[in-house]
């Protein structure tokens, strides 16, 4: 059942990211719904599910991008795993903690990409930080926080997670 839900999540999220998200872009930067989803899955589902969904989503997203497959899989899988690990270490999560966590995770993922990009005279580290990494991290944190708040305020997440874990 969960596997089916995750498949639907992947199949729905990638077209939305590629077709509808460009309309939400600010200064040519759009949030990475994949990273946000993986962090939330890791947080609620644990390390294993975070890692597996992250690897799958990273792979599928790389099929529709010029980006490197390894980078996409490793960062998304890593983000899911770290989110699961953080969810286990931090007993109580609030929206503020989630926003900060997403900000840091997105920054780290963006920095890995900035370092792994082939050196190009136009794309130095400062440009990457200023133009993509920091704006995207802020965007991811805001969108992730809003999603979490929406789910948290509308649904009984505590009960759902407890039942799921049991």
């Amino acid at each position: 059942m969960n596997a089916l839900l995750y498949l639907i999540l992947i199949a729905g999220l990638v077209p939305i990211q590629a077709i509808l998200l460009p309309y939400l872009s600010v200064w040519d930067v759009k949030p990475d719904l994949g990273l946000i989803a993986v962090c939330l899955v890791g947080l609620f589902g644990g390390e294993l599910e975070g890692l597996l969904v992250g690897l799958a989503l990273g792979w599928v997203m790389s099929l529709f991008s010029a980006g490197d497959l390894a980078y996409s899989m490793v960062t998304k899988g890593g983000a899911g795993f770290i989110a699961g690990f953080a969810g286990r270490q931090v007993a109580h999560i609030t929206p503020v903690v989630l926003v900060m966590g997403l900000l840091v995770t997105s920054c780290v993922a963006g920095l890995i990409m900035a370092f792994s990009l082939k050196p190009h005279e136009e794309q130095d580290l400062w440009w990457a930080l200023r133009a993509i990494v920091l704006p995207q991290a802020c965007f991811d944190a805001v969108v992730g926080g809003a999603l979490y708040w929406l789910v948290w305020s509308r649904l009984n997440v505590e009960l759902w997670v407890s039942e799921y874990r049991v």
């Binding site: 590629a18 077709i19 930067v29 994949g34 529709f64 991008s65 010029a66 980006g67 990009l117 993509i132």
Partner: peptide
């Protein structure tokens, strides 16, 4: 054309 890049890097 059915979509744009899923990331911000390309």
């Amino acid at each position: 054309v059915i979509g744009r890049d899923v990331g911000n890097w390309y």
